[in-house]
């Protein structure tokens, strides 16, 4: 295992080293200490590496991740794993706003709470939150799955496209065009699989499923345009 102390090295040096990894690299395990809330730690990694960040990370930690398995042992700032493509990004504490924004694949696990706009514009990523989420989560979500083991704030799932949201706790309010759906065996299996992958203990039977009402998919004027 390689250890990088961010008191002694710059984030630039860390990222540069992580970007140099490929299938032939002899080292694939990294321990980052003294992150002290620094921004842009381990962004743009494209390698099957295990990266543990011991402490609190700032904005965009794990941004655009491909393949890597990244763990933050403390809390994470805004834009955690934004636009993630694949791999796993896990935060043992809480995450700030925009967690997993526009993520296109892979898995994000927040063991604590996630703040507002978690999963905004998500495009295929799976997000599992062990605690509760703030307002406007999954806004404009296009694809993927969001699992919320606690409660959700206002306007959950506003203007979503084809996204599944599983919620165990209370929802302050649903957003425009988001409605409760029937949970079939397929959805139950997906939820069970995601909780297992996230290693979060919860009873899938206690969750409800939410998705798009699809009333916003087309402007009603569309067929009446007069040039």
């Amino acid at each position: 295992m390689t250890e990088i102390d961010l008191d002694k090295s710059e984030v630039r040096e860390l990222n540069s080293m992580l970007h140099s990894l490929d299938d032939k690299s002899s080292e694939s395990s990294f321990r980052v200490i003294s992150p002290k809330g620094k921004h842009n730690i381990a962004v743009g990694v494209d390698a099957k590496a295990d990266i543990t960040i011991e402490g609190h990370a700032g904005h965009y930690v794990g941004g655009m991740n491909k393949h890597a398995n990244i763990t933050v042992t403390g809390n994470a700032g805004s834009g955690l794993a934004e636009n993630i493509m694949s791999g796993v990004v896990r935060v043992k504490g809480n995450s700030s706003q925009y967690t997993g924004a526009t993520g296109r694949g892979g898995l994000i696990v927040v063991e604590g709470d996630a703040a507002a706009r978690c999963g905004i514009s998500m495009k295929g990523v799976d997000i599992v939150v062990g605690g509760s989420v703030g307002h406007m989560c999954a806004f404009l979500g296009q694809s993927g799955n969001m699992v919320i083991c606690g409660d959700a704030g206002d306007a959950l799932g506003d203007s979503i496209f084809e996204l599944q949201i599983f919620v165990q706790g209370k929802i302050k309010s649903l957003g425009h065009d988001c409605e409760e759906k029937d949970m079939g065996p397929e959805q139950m299996a997906k939820l069970t699989e995601l909780l297992d992958k996230a290693q979060i203990k919860a009873d899938p039977q206690k969750f409800k499923l939410y998705g798009p009402a699809r009333t916003l998919y087309n402007f009603k004027i569309d067929n009446a345009y007069l040039p």
Partner: peptide, 17 residues
């Protein structure tokens, strides 16, 4: 990553800042 044939409405604000 959109369903075919819908009227696509893009966000007016960036999602992560």
């Amino acid at each position: 990553t959109l369903p075919k044939g819908i009227d696509q409405r893009s966000a007016c604000r960036h999602p992560d800042w």
